[in-house]
């Protein structure tokens, strides 16, 4: 396999004594879109929340195993640094309600107390919004509150907010589950274009979505990584019987 950016080795995740992920091994290829697919409650969201160390914020949550970003163990890095290099977009759009569109995009800098010149912050805002395919829609209302946008626009704003930090990996946790079909297709198109700049890891319970946008697909079932491979191969000639049954709708 080509360039690997993230290597997950023997990752187990727990909530208290309850094991939600067992022994996941996965190498995420760089500048590709990898879909993590599986029925609800299978642990796919937990998997990506381990990657930017959001999992451990929940009381009683813990992990074992290693996750390497390039060759650095993320558990040896400061979680704040991890989260700056690995961005995340959530299920429901969550722009900061007190901030304008502009301030939302550079929130990562502002909230961290990084001072940017006007020219530079203008540049970052425009570039990020262009990348998130939102610039044309909001360039004239950029100082209005972000919460006035539609759900799909808000989600693209959240993507722009993550992109502004120039992350190496972008985690998308079912980014379209709260959106209508039109907004969904907008976001999917966007995901397709994003991989020029960033490695995308997309959680979805929607098989069709995984098939449409991803280069590689991982199938997670009952906390276990069942199968991982190029999307085309996994959808046409799955190796594992459970993958085949999920794809043909026997369960899930």
């Amino acid at each position: 396999m080509e360039d690997t950016i993230l290597r997950i080795e023997n990752l187990c995740a727990f909530f208290g004594d309850h094991r939600v992920l067992s022994c996941v091994n996965l190498s995420v290829p760089r500048n590709k879109t990898t879909a993590v697919m599986g029925p609800s409650g299978c642990g796919k969201t937990t998997l990506i929340r381990c990657i930017n160390r959001m999992h451990e914020l929940v009381q009683g949550a813990s992990t074992t195993g290693r996750i390497l970003l390039h060759d650095d163990d993320i558990h040896r890095m400061n979680p704040i640094v991890v989260r700056r290099r690995i961005g995340m977009v959530f299920q429901k759009p969550n722009p900061f309600p007190t901030m304008s569109i502009y301030d939302n995009v550079i929130a990562g800098y502002k909230l961290n107390g990084v001072r940017l010149g006007k020219a530079e912050s203008d540049r970052i805002v425009e570039e990020s919004l262009v990348k998130a395919a939102l610039w044309d829609e909001v360039k004239d209302i950029i100082h209005r509150k972000g919460t006035f946008l539609s759900g799909g626009q808000q989600q693209r704003l959240c993507i722009a907010r993550s992109l502004a930090m120039a992350p190496e990996v972008l985690l998308l946790d079912e980014p379209t589950s709260a959106l209508d079909p039109k907004a969904t297709s907008r976001i999917e198109q966007l995901i397709f274009e994003l991989k020029k700049d960033v490695t995308v890891l997309l959680v979805t319970h929607n098989m069709a979505q995984a098939a449409r946008v991803s280069d590689y697909t991982a199938f997670v079932y009952l906390g276990e990584l069942v199968e991982f491979g190029p999307t085309e191969k996994l959808f046409t000639v799955p190796e594992d019987r459970r993958t085949e049954e999920y794809l043909t709708g026997k369960f899930g």
């Binding site: 704040i80 989260r83 700056r84 995340m88 959530f90 961290n112 959240c158 907010r161």
Partner: peptide, 13 residues
């Protein structure tokens, strides 16, 4: 809590 997570996920302490 989505708001807290949004901020934490940007690497904000």
């Amino acid at each position: 809590s989505a708001l807290r997570e949004a901020s934490l996920a940007l690497g904000v302490p």
